[in-house]
């Protein structure tokens, strides 16, 4: 199964180190291949460096592409994480 979803970052700091670490933690739980894309740049969801290199400040939009057997669950959890502003205050 392959799912593509577009999300907008709402948290204050954008995709900073702690937020990126949380994405990696979620990505590592699933078998599906998770790829983030912003302005033509791609990042592997299980690489913290790839995600940091995307350099997403607050308000940036990115595309998540999840491909694999557990794609639905993976994308739901990632969306929830982003929606909850990575648990930031």
């Amino acid at each position: 199964m392959r799912i593509v979803e577009r999300v907008t970052l709402k948290n204050e700091l954008g995709l900073h180190a702690r937020a990126a670490a949380k994405i990696v933690k979620v990505s590592d739980k699933y078998q599906s291949r998770i790829v983030f894309e912003r302005d033509g740049m791609q990042a592997d969801g299980s690489s913290i460096l790839d995600i940091l290199v995307l350099a997403c400040p607050k308000g940036s939009s990115l595309t998540m592409e999840v491909d694999g057997v557990d794609a639905r669950k993976a994308i739901d959890e990632l969306c929830e994480l982003i929606e909850n502003k990575f648990g930031e205050m």
Binding site: A17, R18, A21, V24, D44, S46, S47, I48, L49, D50
Partner: peptide, 16 residues
């Protein structure tokens, strides 16, 4: 501890 986790994550980063 969270920042140490981040350091460990960087060490394990497969792209890196």
């Amino acid at each position: 501890p969270m920042f140490i986790d981040i350091n460990i994550m960087l060490l394990r980063d497969k792209v890196f």
